[in-house]
């Protein structure tokens, strides 16, 4: 075995590949495109151009690269009043945990390319959802560590929001699992097949899931923890330079991870491509389809910025508990009925 082979096998060792190359790199690109789309689409609605002059041919996509690089090289101001270690650690852990669900998310039905051994994939949905609940804790930590009135209010708001959306997100993403009777993401995707997508069969749970994602990643109209007119940038007020970029990137990556889960649970995963053998047919094409669907979900959520303002905190919580939670439960009920009828 030559060195080249070793390196290649190391890179293509599924967990590494999936987590670092696809997870981090891909998510970074997706985050960039999502922010660019958010700004550009809003600009189109608002009858203007949006970011443009850094790269006219790419429609200003390089502005996002410039923003990222600028943050990377900018001074990191650490105020004297902060708790140093939590302040530094929170964004890093938040970012790392944001992309960790990639490590258990299969993007193809070909077992050779699963990130984990088949035996461990049995509970992949459970593990993925469990990890998605962790990053918000670090947002609260960062708000608390920054020790500033605005960050603390922002952190408390984030805590409120977590309490309300987490249940909805988990339950609504479980609805397909209930219908299929398996916690294995691959099984759920395979059960959906070419036509029986859950977006059609269980629109209630899908809607609830979209709302939960918008809430959890503080997209409009639920951009409450970072609501500018009262709490400047919410928990991230004191962050500057690369730490702020990590925080902001973390939110978009979480949105992307949720988009991935939604595309697998509700949008038929890699179908209409049926994964075959080999790298191209077995991994590249199916995962591309999954990612494209996820990106569509992310962009759709980002587009809400142009249309809605933001809700008040109590209104958002009210909506979550009174409207979306019953919707989710109805979705679960619907899934049970489907399971009883034996559609799968």
């Amino acid at each position: 075995m030559s060195v080249l082979d070793t390196v290649a096998s190391l890179i293509f060792y599924p967990p590494i590949w999936q987590l670092l190359i696809l997870g981090f790199g891909g998510a970074l690109v997706v985050a960039m495109v999502a922010v660019w789309f958010e700004r550009k689409a809003a600009a189109r609605v608002q009858r203007r151009i949006g970011p443009y002059w850094a790269s006219p041919r790419l429609g200003g996509l390089m502005h996002l690269m410039a923003d990222m690089l600028r943050y990377a090289f900018q001074q990191v101001v650490i105020p004297r009043t902060v708790d140093f270690w939590p302040f530094i650690a929170a964004p890093i852990f938040g970012m790392a945990l944001s992309i960790l669900p990639f490590a258990v998310t299969p993007l193809t039905s070909n077992p050779n390319f699963w990130p984990l051994p088949p035996a461990l994939m049995e509970y992949s949905l459970l593990v993925a959802l469990a990890i998605t609940t962790l990053p918000p804790i670090f947002i609260i930590v960062s708000g608390w560590a920054a020790n500033n009135p605005f960050t603390i209010i922002g952190g408390v708001r984030e805590a409120f929001i977590i309490l309300s959306y987490e249940l909805i997100a988990i339950l609504s993403l479980f609805a397909p699992a209930v219908a299929v009777g398996s916690l294995n993401i691959v099984d759920i995707v395979q059960a959906q097949g070419l036509v029986k997508w859950f977006i059609v069969l269980n629109p209630l749970a899908f809607l609830a899931a979209i709302l939960a994602v918008a809430m959890s990643t503080s997209a409009f109209p639920f951009e409450i923890p970072e609501s500018e007119p009262e709490v400047v940038a919410g928990p991230f007020t004191e962050y500057s330079g690369i730490l702020y970029a990590l925080n902001m990137g973390g939110a978009y990556m979480r949105r992307f991870v949720f988009g991935l889960l939604i595309s697998l649970m509700f949008l038929g995963g890699w179908y209409p491509i049926v994964p075959g053998e080999g790298f191209i047919l077995g991994y590249a094409l199916p995962s591309l389809v999954v990612v494209v669907k996820a990106v569509v979900v992310v962009l759709a959520i980002s587009f809400l910025r142009a249309i809605y303002g933001r809700y008040r905190l109590d209104q958002a919580l009210d909506m979550a508990w009174r409207l979306v939670l019953p919707l989710t439960l109805a979705g679960i009920l619907l899934a049970l009925v489907e399971a009883y009828l034996g559609i799968f």
């Binding site: 203007r48 443009y52 002059w53 101001v77 940038a233 962050y239 702020y244």
Partner: peptide, 19 residues
């Protein structure tokens, strides 16, 4: 605003001084 659109030069008015 839409007429001149400073954002096309990459200038985005932002909320806090730290960023």
């Amino acid at each position: 605003s839409p007429r001149v659109d400073g954002e096309q030069f990459g200038a985005l008015p932002w909320v806090g001084p730290r960023q």
